[in-house]
Amino acid sequence: MAKLSLEELRALRARESARMAKRDIHGKSIHVVVGMGTCGIQAGAKVTLNSIVDEIEAKGLKDVIVTQAPCQGKCDQEPVVEVYSPALGAVAYGKVDARLARQIVDEHIIAGRIIKDHQIDLEA
């Protein structure tokens, strides 16, 4: 097998990271992605992520994946949280503080309702 160049290795890593971040969720785990770039950290993303983890633990939920993503280009909306679930597909929320983080677990993940007031469009 030919040796990969550094650029090829980087491209491979980027593809694998993208694949893991947006894995096929049909019938599988719920996946929560928290933006943890520098802008996210400055906006309080660590508190957001830890609040999500605490609420998932408190509610005894199993099989929820929580990963961290770099800056997604929506710095004015940080901390940004994306939720991928079989029931609701991919939904993004902006300015997620500790309170909204718990609400996302309770309303979106458990009750299956999108929190429209805080939903954002990452493609806009």
Partner: peptide, 13 residues
């Protein structure tokens, strides 16, 4: 197990 599970992150913390 998988360290991206919320349960694993909580235990590590």
């Amino acid at each position: 197990g998988a360290l991206d599970r919320a349960e694993a992150i909580w235990k590590m913390r």
